[in-house]
């Protein structure tokens, strides 16, 4: 009788856990991830020096806030993991131009306006899965 009761208890625990995890495993997983906010850089007009001349030319570049230029930059990118699209942080090295006002221009040709990680709850590492609070 005692064995049957324990078995019933185990059965109930098992099925309730499976039902609970089916509905809430995604939320729990997101909760355990590094929570970040992203920033979508916009194009701004910058006065840049030409390669050969000292003349300044007006050019549209992606701009990042000046305080971001002093830290490591990470972009948020989607990738498939375990059969679904997830968001990951990827460290990038970009060449920044001369600061103008509150912004730095991004000079690198291999940056195409991917969303940059503005702030995170804990230190980011390259390739880490993240949860973006303001993902659209």
């Amino acid at each position: 009788m005692r064995v049957k009761k324990s078995l019933l208890f185990f059965t109930l625990i098992f099925w309730f856990s499976m039902i609970f995890l089916t509905f809430f495993s995604r939320s729990l997983h997101n909760y355990m991830l590094n929570q970040v906010e992203i920033y979508q850089p916009k194009m701004r007009m910058f006065s840049l020096k030409g390669n050969d001349t000292e003349e300044e030319v007006k050019q549209k570049c992606y701009a990042i806030p000046s305080w971001m230029g002093e830290h490591d930059l990470y972009v948020a990118e989607t990738r498939e993991k375990n059969g679904e699209e997830r968001i990951f942080a990827r460290s990038i090295q970009v060449e920044l131009g001369k600061k103008e006002g509150l912004f730095y221009p991004i000079m690198s040709k291999d940056y195409f306006g991917e969303p940059l990680i503005l702030r995170s709850d804990s230190v980011l590492s390259d390739g880490e899965e993240i949860y973006v609070k303001n993902w659209r």
């Binding site: 995890l21 089916t22 495993s25 995604r26 729990l28 997983h29 355990m32 375990n82 059969g83």
Partner: peptide, 13 residues
């Protein structure tokens, strides 16, 4: 398995 592989639940059910 339990938190990072949601397809597992679909297949289990």
């Amino acid at each position: 398995l339990l938190f990072d592989t949601p397809i597992f639940y679909r297949m289990f059910w």
